[in-house]
Design a binder for these strands. Structure first.
Lengths: 225, 225
DNA sequence: CGTATGTTTCGATAAAGATCGAAATATGAA
DNA sequence: TTCATATTTCGATCTTTATCGAAACATACG
C-alpha cells in the first residue's frame, strides 16, 4: 500500500486532466451539472460521474440535487484559493514556454476567482480599500471597520442586505498574476455582484474573464484610483 | 494525448506519494541529497532519481551539485507556499477522520514553513508587527516602514546584514492552521534565523517543528504580546 | 402508464507510469 | 591507479486507473 501525506491524495485528484478541467470550470463559482462538467472535461458521462464521485468524496465538491440534475460546485473558498495558487505556480514556473496571448491578458486584468474579483483590478480595489482604512487586522483576522462600512455603503452594499453566514466577511486571497492580495470572503462576493448589478461589468460566458464596460471602468477608476 | 490546464501537471507531480514525501522533507528549507530524499520517500535510489528529475524539470526543485552529491531544494517561496496551502486544505477536508495527535499540535503552534516561522506563533508575530505599523501595503506590495526597521533592529536585525537578493523582503504567507497570514520573504527568514541564533528556539530534527525554550518563549511573548 | 433524458454502476480494456535489478557513469579517497 | 560511494540510465515488470460500452436506475413529462 502506498503511503504518503494526506495532501498527496488531494493533489493527485487535482492532477488528472479531466478533473482539472472540471475544477477550472467550477472556478467561476457557478454550480454545474454532471453532464455539463462531462462536456467541459471532454469525457463521457460515465467517466465524469466517476471523477465527480471521487472529488465529492474527498470533500472538494459540494452536491445539490435538483430533480434529475445534480449540481456540483466547489465546496468552499479554501478549495478555490488552493486551485488559484496552483494556477499561479504553474504560470510562474512555465515562464520558459509561456506565450501570453490576449485571452491570458484579459484574465490578468480582471477575472472571477470563485465568486469575487481577481486580477489587477481586484488587487487595485483591495489596495485602495486597505489604504482608506476599510479593514482592521486584528488577531481574529480581517474585519470591516466603520470607515469600510461607509465605503461600501456608497456602492449600495449594506450589511443587512448581505446573506447571513458563518463564512468570514472579509478574507485575503493571493492573486497569482500579481502576487498581491485581493479581497475574498462574503464582502468580495457582494462587491463583484454589485458591479454586475450596476452594469459596470459582466462575466464573459465560458470563461473566468470579467469584462468592464467603458462606463463601468470609469466608475471603477474613480472609486479605486 | 491528454490535455488539461498547466496546473494539472504540477498537481499530478505533487500527487505521487513518493514525490510528496520528498517535497514534505524539503519544506524544512534545507537542501537534501538524492540519497537522503530516497530514504525519506521510502523508495530505491533509482526511483528517487527519476522522481527528482521530473520535479526539477518542472521547475519545482533547484539543484546544487557539490562533488558527487546532488543537493535538491525547493525552487522558491512560491512552491513552498503552494504546498503549505495544499496541506492546509487536506487538513481542513480531512475533518471527518482526522485525529489531532500531540505532534500535530506542536506543528500548529510553531513550525518551519520553507524558512520562516509559521503556526500560531508566526501568525501572532505578524499580527503584532502589523499592528505596530511595521509594514506599508502599497501598490507595489508589502514594504518595511521605518517603524518596522526600528522594530527588527531591536532584535539585532539590520538591513545591511541581510543577504542581498531580488527576492522580496516582506511577503505574506497564509497559514493553514490559523487561516491567517504570517510573515514570509527574506525578513521572515532572517527573523527565524535570529530566534535560533539567540537561543530562543531550535528546529526539531526530522520534523518541521520549531521548539521554543521557556526563556525564548518569554522573550517572544514580551515582544509579540 | 410509456418514453425521453440525466446519471450511475458494472465490466472489460488499454495506457500511463511507478518500481526495481543490473549496469553504466561520475566523483572522491587511498 | 584501484576501490568505494553517489547517482543515473536502461530495460522489464507490474500496479494503478482513466476510459468507454452496455445496462440499470432515477426523474420528469406527456
Amino acid at each position: 500500500m502506498k503511503t504518503g501525506p494526506d495532501f498527496a491524495a488531494i493533489a493527485a485528484l487535482i492532477g488528472d486532466p479531466a478533473r482539472a478541467n472540471m475544477l477550472t470550470a467550477l472556478m467561476s463559482g457557478k454550480a454545474l451539472t454532471a453532464g455539463e462538467l462531462a462536456t467541459e472535461a471532454g469525457v463521457s458521462a460515465q467517466t465524469a460521474s466517476s471523477h465527480l464521485h471521487k472529488l465529492q468524496n474527498a470533500g472538494l465538491l459540494r452536491l445539490q440535487q435538483q430533480g434529475r440534475h445534480r449540481y456540483f460546485s466547489l465546496s468552499g473558498d479554501e478549495v478555490a484559493q488552493t486551485l488559484e495558487r496552483l494556477m499561479g505556480l504553474a504560470a510562474g514556473l512555465g515562464h520558459l514556454r509561456t506565450r501570453t496571448g490576449p485571452r491570458d491578458q484579459a484574465l490578468r486584468t480582471a477575472r472571477v476567482c470563485y465568486n469575487h474579483l481577481a486580477g489587477d483590478m481586484g488587487v487595485r480595489m483591495f489596495a485602495t480599500m486597505r489604504r482608506r482604512g476599510c479593514f482592521d487586522f486584528g488577531d481574529s483576522g480581517m474585519v470591516l471597520t466603520d470607515a469600510g462600512r461607509e465605503f461600501v455603503a456608497a456602492l449600495g452594499i449594506t450589511q443587512d442586505r448581505m446573506p447571513r453566514s458563518k463564512a468570514p466577511m472579509c478574507r485575503e486571497c493571493l492573486d497569482w498574476s500579481a502576487r498581491k492580495s485581493h479581497l475574498a470572503g462574503r464582502l468580495g462576493r457582494a462587491m463583484l455582484t454589485r458591479f454586475e448589478t450596476l452594469g459596470w461589468a459582466r462575466r464573459v460566458p465560458e470563461t473566468r474573464i470579467v469584462q468592464f464596460s467603458s462606463r463601468g471602468l470609469a466608475k471603477f477608476d474613480a472609486m479605486f484610483g
